[in-house]
Design a protein around this nucleic acid. Structure first.
Lengths: 339, 339
DNA sequence: CTGAAAGCGCTTACAG
DNA sequence: CTGAAAGCGCTTACAG
């Protein structure tokens, strides 16, 4: 391979001069600079990443820890991954993708060996086992997903509490007094998927305060089971006029369920979902929804992480917990209930 | 950070001895070995990846170049990514994920700078601009997706020609004589998505040979457009008794389309799709299908790549083009046509 | 404005 | 079975 030494020789300068010509970290005469660049061009020089990392203690790589769990909608994870990856690249960082089941061990491996300058954790659980490892690591970390304990880390998530309230408030304003809520599977919550119960509890509380009857159930993560659950729920509560969905599979299954029952939206039933814009487009779901903004969250997490990586000053700043205000995307699937 | 020098001092040996104790590349007395391991444990030592890469010219990282194009079903890409990532990790490699739009430039960057020991290209087009870059790179590469020119690279893909034939043969055997085929959008083929026309052309040819009328159309990649296309196709050919799908969006949309038309499968219409098992499960599609086996392809590509990386001898071996024989997963959605 | 030299943390022939 | 030393390819104080 061609090294900076080869370039220096070809340009007739020292290796340090060649290095400075590339980095711009000290003044170089225009002629010399040009000679170095020309030489590099002729020889096809690119700096060796390992050598540079060793010399600078910077890899320009960010670790991305995904977590694919049973009964969670995997394609949703992809949106977060792309949000992180695309934005990291724009800031000059590459992505080391980690999909191992044992996230804590993998995290220790990539941080201890200094493969990465920082880490983004996806799909963070309430009591995530990766957090103690990340806090002990020398690199900064950012989370997508709100855990029980946020100390020492920057956290980004959709505000699921506000989302639950927004959904209920929206239906209440239209005049609905009996609603249904389908969440993710119960064991997703049990094992620490806080987003499940944060939305659900907030919706239940708000409904209670407003004098609304809210029937909340946990739904399955795939068809045909979720279809059966939807049918059962609609059978059990024929007087309910609104349906809230915090469950991608339920949203995807709903059109055929309603079709089979001959129910019209919003004529017979008002519907509000919670998913990403991309998901809505892929399946062209005709429902109003609260945007879960995975690209936005990935962007925010990476940007903050890079800030911390870049300056020791930024590293001293207080940690942030940023919960995005839910945005309601109106697709016309809600209306006043029929009398 | 704690270095191998610290470990050596703590254990009372030289750095080379410590290094050999870890690598096992030369005999070390049991006592010394234990002292080194204990010291490493006490100090919490992990080798610096950059330094090791510099010394060995091996990063133990594989580049994974994904390619997300308009009107291709993004979640399908995720399955390939996980197939590569999970299997790479098992073989001791980490994954550098590249999602940049300009794949050729990104590929040059990560290979020139020696960030990776090898590269897997996903979603390879017929005349993929990344191929010349990969051939010129010092690292070996493996493709998932069959390009027009395979020289110098290991190639893995589903046999789409055999898939097209299998679909038609299957229907023919059951007695069908008029079929419909919905492919991906035409411009996906136009820009080089060879899998589109390979399956389509093979199906058309086989149908012709068997005296079957096959009406082949290109479908959109999302609802509701694809739903309209399906309706239009069924309207235009009421005498067709079988439907072949090489289009994920069409498969996802079909249940509600058939529901709306009151069509029974396989009573009124026999259906065969082509997608992954994971996709079938996520949407619980009730159709028989040809398994596209993304995990299997990722596995094969990585395994071959690691072989090439591992030994210069393996690097001399002839390149392989491995097309997986399509596997038919029977879900009972095909039957003899009604008279 | 430029160069010679030290150092980043490993591995691996070379010697014993 | 073990150690002292060179080298991987960079960057960056130190000198001039």
């Amino acid at each position: 391979m061609v090294t900076i030494g080869d370039v220096a020789r070809e340009a007739g300068v020292s290796r340090s001069t060649a290095s400075y010509a590339f980095s711009g970290k000290r003044a170089i005469s225009a002629q010399v600079r040009q000679r170095v660049f020309d030489a590099a061009g002729r020889l096809g020089y690119t700096a060796n990443a390992g050598a540079r990392a060793l010399a600078t203690s910077q890899t320009k790589v960010i670790g991305l820890l995904a977590r694919f769990l049973e009964d969670e909608f995997a394609p949703a994870m992809l949106q977060y991954m792309l949000g992180v990856s695309d934005n990291a690249r724009e800031l000059g960082y590459d992505i080391l993708l980690v999909t191992e089941a044992d996230g804590a061990r993998a995290l220790r491996r990539i941080t201890d060996s200094r493969m990465v300058d920082g880490v983004v954790l996806l799909n963070v659980a309430h009591d995530d086992v990766r957090l103690p490892v990340l806090r002990a690591a020398p690199q900064p970390g950012a989370l997508v997903g709100l855990p029980g304990d946020c100390t020492g880390l920057d956290v980004f998530d959709l505000d699921f509490v506000a989302t639950g309230r927004l959904m209920v408030d929206h239906m209440h304003r239209l005049g609905h007094r009996e609603l249904l809520l389908v969440s993710q599977p119960e064991h997703v919550a049990t094992r620490g998927g806080a987003y499940v119960w944060r939305l659900r509890d907030a919706a239940l509380e708000r409904a209670h305060d407003l004098g609304i009857r809210l029937h909340a159930v946990f739904g399955e993560s795939s068809q045909p089971a979720i279809g059966g659950t939807l049918h059962g729920l609609l059978d059990a509560h024929p007087s309910a006029t609104g349906l809230l969905l915090n469950n991608e599979a339920a949203a995807a299954a709903l059109p055929s369920v309603l079709n089979a029952r001959g129910l019209d939206v919003p004529g017979d039933l008002s519907v509000v979902g919670r998913y990403s814009d991309e998901f809505a487009r892929s399946f062209s779901l005709p429902y109003s929804f609260v945007e879960s903004a995975p690209d936005r969250l990935g962007d925010l997490a990476v940007r903050q992480l890079v800030r911390r990586i870049g300056s020791t000053q930024a590293r001293e700043e207080p940690y942030v917990v940023r919960l995005l205000t839910p945005r309601f995307a109106d697709r016309g699937s809600t209306a006043a209930p029929c009398p």
